[in-house]
Each structure stands twice: as structure tokens, then as C-alpha cells.
Design a protein around this nucleic acid. Structure first.
Lengths: 218, 218
DNA sequence: ATCTTAATGCTACTTTTGTAGCGTTAAGAA
DNA sequence: TTCTTAACGCTACAAAAGTAGCATTAAGAT
């Protein structure tokens, strides 16, 4: 029953410092992307000293972790339009909107996630939470009989949203709103045909030697 | 008719230096990922001097650009199994193999692409080339009547491969071989239903204000 | 009010990263 | 061969990133 960490001191000044730092970081990120987000810049903007930043956060990715974890505490919930197709289209519209924003905070956060394992995990947690909430869409669809029992919520949601993220963030091509909706409808149809069920318990992570193929560089 | 750049000197020593540097970079990348790839490390390993690296390449991402452009000159071509589903499954198997390799060169290259615009464009060129070659799969399928005329090769290919990349690289979750094949079959079914045609000439890149929604951080 | 001490601010230092200037080497032409 | 000069190696330097040690401030307890 360890007492609450003896003598922590989370109130007052520390809280103000954290708030000032996170606000400055958020502003810098939205203004000039990840490149504008250096500890020195945050120190200047927030009025908090360099060394304090290095002590409490240590690096830019760690600061992003804090920012992400703080941002995950919102009350967002998945759309509920009454039909699977409607819900998926609505989700993809939101993703599309977030991806076409300029400058894209999403892209900046993804970029940051490739600079440290901690930031990676924070972003994964964030998305995990989002897909978890979206699973409700699939459960309702199964209850309504729009998708067969056994339909894997994650597979369906990834099938719908994955192409959007891929085309925009990794392939770097613009995505039209109509395309975004099309991917949603395509995933919906595939789910209705029972092609996105969680069949087989084969969860072995990898496979063979794995050399060559597209995506491989040399 | 500008003469061939007067007096270039691409032979001999310069070529040896470039080869040594690219080889060292490739080795470091495969061994310890992007973090192990610093200009100093490449200098040590290749025997080429620091300043030469800074002069000719300038930064790690630029070096990756060179590496990528050199690697794109291979003779890879899309599978041809006789059916659309077979081809898509084969493609996704290759992608899956590349993505589950450890350490993943693909992941490292993607990470590098977020560190400079030049590296970004190089990676986009590389993938553009790959999807271009894969378009043959869709053309053959349309000729065989497996997909309706007007089916957009890119949409179909992104629908098939996008979920793989998304789940593995952005969401950070393992992907089973069976899942990879499932996404290919789902895309195939959607295409057969005519859900991945290039309908409407609306190629406007973006839209409204675009705030909030999943993927947005705060 | 007074005391204790976690958290912050400050200065000085080290390490890493990137650049400038100049002498040296060797590719390509005569 | 000899000559020219693009490309390279080297040293020294400049700027940025990160750390150490100590003084100062203020949160929480008495």
C-alpha cells in the first residue's frame, strides 16, 4: 500500500511550467512543423529555462510523448449514423480532414514517432485508443446484421482507413474526399462478404527469410 | 546542344569513393537502423573523410536519396499468376516479407524520409515506380474481365497494400501472413464489385478547414 | 511564521555536428 | 609524358546540442 510517493510536488509551479511548455510546444508544432520544435525554441517561447527542459523531458520526442498523452484525454467518440457504410464514410471523412490540414499536425507527430521508441509507443497508444473506440461501429454493424459475426473490428477499420494514411503520409499523394469515401465503401463491401473475419488462430508474427520485393531498397 | 558538361570526372576515384560510401551506408543501415547511420560513422567505416561526405552529400537523408535512387535501378516486375486475386496476394506476400524483416530497411528508409524533403521525394519516386509496374496486374485483370473497365490501378493497389503498411509502420502492430492475404482478397472483391473505379474527375486536392478528428493530437 | 527540500534558474563546461581554407592527389586532355 | 583542375584529405574553427554543479525559489508540512 505504498503511500502516495511520500513527498511529490505536482501542484503550483511545476504545473505552471508544464502547461507553459506544452502550450509553447503545441504552438511551435502547428506553426512550423517538427523542424521548428527544438528544446531551445520551446525554452525561448515558454520562458522556461533550457536546463529545466533537458531535465524534465530530455528530448523533443519525449516532449511529444507528454503532448500526445495529454491530448488523448478527450471525449472523442466514433460516429453513429445508423449504418456501417455511413459510419465508415464518416470516419474516413474525419481522417481525410485531419490529413489534408496544412501544416499537418498528424504528419509532424508521425515524423516525431520515428525519432525515438518512446514517441513511437506514445503514438501507438494514441491510435490504439482511437481504434478501440471505433470498434463500436463494427459491433453495432454486426448486431444489425450488416456484417457477419466474427468480423474483426480492427481488420475492417484498418482496411477502411489504412489506404488513406498510406497514400497521404507514405506515398505523399493528395487524396480526394471522394477517394476517401470510396475506400470506406470498399472495406464495407468486403466486410459484408465476410472477407474481414478473424479466421484462424495463426498469430505467428513473422515468417521466412524475407528479402527483396517492393518496399525493399536495394 | 550543350557539350557534355565540359569536364566532368565521374570515373576512377570519385566512383570508388561513392561505392565505398554507399556500401558502408547500406551496411550500417542494415545493422543498426537509421540511428546507426551518421555521417561520422559512415566516414569511419568507409575510410572516406568526414569533409568529403559533408561536401558531396551534406546530410544523412541526402545520402539515403543516393542510396534509394541507386536501388531503384533493378529489374523487379509484378507477379503474374493468371488471376487478379493470385497477383494481389503475391504482391502482399512480398510486402509482408519486406515489412517483417528485422531490422526493417523499409522502416528505416521511411524514417529517413521524414527528415528532409529530398529524402521524401526520393522515396515517393521509388514507390511511384513500384506502383507503376504493378499497374500491369490491374490491366491484365480488366482484360480478363475480373474487374470492370475504369478500375483505377492505383486505388486497387493502395486498397490492397495500404492496410499492410499502415498497420505495420504507423500503428506498429505485427501483421500475420494470413492477414496480409486477407487484405489482398478484400481489395480484389471490392474491385470486382466496381467499387474502385476512377469515377468523377474531381481531383481537387483538399477541402475545408479540417480540424479535429482521429489522428489529430489535441 | 518557519523549516525542509523538490523543482527551477543560472553559469560554465563537454560533446557532437557542421563549415572554411588550403595543400594534395589523380582523371582526362594534349 | 606533361599540364590542368575537379575531387579529395587535412587542420582548424564555429555553432549547436547536451550535461554538471551550485545557487535560488517556492510547495507543502509543522
Amino acid at each position: 500500500m505504498a503511500q502516495p510517493d511520500s513527498r511529490r510536488r505536482p501542484g503550483g509551479r511545476s504545473a505552471r511550467v508544464r502547461a507553459a511548455v506544452l502550450a509553447a510546444a503545441d504552438a511551435l508544432l502547428a506553426e512550423s512543423g517538427l523542424d521548428g520544435l527544438t528544446l531551445d525554441a520551446v525554452a525561448d517561447r515558454s520562458g522556461v529555462h533550457r536546463t529545466t527542459l533537458y531535465r524534465r523531458w530530455g528530448s523533443v520526442p519525449m516532449l511529444l510523448v507528454d503532448l500526445l498523452d495529454a491530448g488523448a484525454e478527450d471525449d472523442w467518440q466514433a460516429p453513429d449514423t445508423g449504418s456501417l457504410e455511413g459510419d465508415l464514410v464518416a470516419v474516413n471523412r474525419e481522417v481525410h480532414a485531419a490529413l489534408t490540414a496544412e501544416p499537418s499536425v498528424t504528419a509532424a507527430v508521425v515524423a516525431a514517432s520515428f525519432r525515438s521508441p518512446e514517441a513511437r509507443e506514445a503514438l501507438h497508444r494514441f491510435w490504439e485508443d482511437r481504434y478501440e473506440r471505433c470498434a463500436a461501429v463494427v459491433h453495432r454493424a454486426v448486431e444489425r446484421g450488416e456484417a457477419p459475426p466474427g468480423t474483426d473490428p480492427r481488420r475492417l477499420l484498418v482496411a477502411a482507413t489504412g489506404p488513406l494514411y498510406h497514400q497521404r503520409i507514405l506515398l505523399g499523394r493528395p487524396v480526394t474526399r471522394e477517394e476517401a469515401e470510396g475506400y470506406a465503401r470498399a472495406a464495407c463491401a468486403a466486410a459484408a462478404s465476410g472477407l474481414l473475419r478473424d479466421c484462424g488462430g495463426d498469430t505467428s508474427p513473422g515468417g521466412g527469410p524475407a528479402r527483396g520485393g517492393p518496399g525493399r531498397s536495394r
